[in-house]
Simulated scan of single mutants.
Amino acid sequence: MAVDLDPQLLDILACPSDDHAKLVVGTPADPDADALTCTECGRQFRVDDGVPVLLLDEAIEPGEQPADQ
C-alpha cells in the first residue's frame, strides 16, 4: 500500500535530522512502501495509518533492514 499524503503536507515535511532535507514517498527498494525517505541522509521513516513517524530514534538507517523483514 502506498503512502497517500496531501501533496501540500508532503511539500513541507522534512527530515528531522540536522540536514532538514525533503522527504519522498516510498523507499529505494520499494517505491510503494508505507514510508518516507530523506533525500539527503537516506533515513526511512514509517507511516502508520497515514501519520508519518518522524522520530530519529524510530528511523531506519540507510543499509539497515526493517525489523519486520
Rank of each mutant, 00 (worst) to 15 (best):
M1H: 08
M1V: 10
M1F: 04
M1K: 07
M1L: 09
A2V: 13
A2L: 03
V3D: 11
V3P: 05
V3W: 01
V3A: 05
D4A: 12
D4M: 04
D4L: 13
L5P: 11
L5G: 07
L5Q: 06
D6L: 06
P7W: 03
P7I: 11
Q8K: 15
L10Q: 11
L10H: 09
L10P: 12
L10V: 10
D11Q: 14
D11C: 00
I12P: 00
L13H: 04
L13Y: 06
A14H: 12
A14I: 01
A14K: 14
C15K: 07
C15M: 07
P16T: 13
S17P: 00
S17I: 00
D18G: 14
D18T: 11
H20S: 12
H20Q: 15
A21Q: 09
L23T: 11
V24G: 00
V25A: 03
V25G: 01
G26R: 02
T27P: 02
P28N: 04
A29E: 15
A29V: 03
D30V: 01
D30P: 04
P31E: 10
P31G: 01
D32R: 02
A33H: 01
A33V: 04
A33P: 05
A33R: 09
A33W: 02
D34R: 08
D34G: 08
D34W: 00
D34N: 13
D34H: 08
D34P: 02
A35Y: 02
A35I: 04
A35L: 09
A35C: 07
L36I: 03
T37F: 02
C38K: 03
C38M: 06
E40W: 02
C41W: 02
C41L: 10
G42I: 10
G42S: 07
G42H: 11
G42Y: 08
R43F: 04
Q44T: 10
Q44E: 13
F45N: 06
R46V: 14
R46G: 00
R46T: 12
V47Y: 08
D49Q: 15
G50E: 08
G50Q: 05
G50R: 06
P52N: 07
P52D: 09
P52C: 01
V53C: 05
L54R: 10
L54K: 11
L55Y: 07
L55Q: 11
L56G: 03
L56C: 09
L56K: 09
D57W: 05
D57Y: 07
E58T: 12
E58G: 09
E58K: 14
A59K: 10
A59S: 15
E61Y: 06
E61G: 09
P62Q: 11
P62I: 07
P62Y: 07
P62E: 06
G63L: 14
E64D: 15
E64A: 14
Q65L: 15
A67R: 13
A67D: 15
A67F: 11
A67E: 15
D68P: 01
D68K: 13
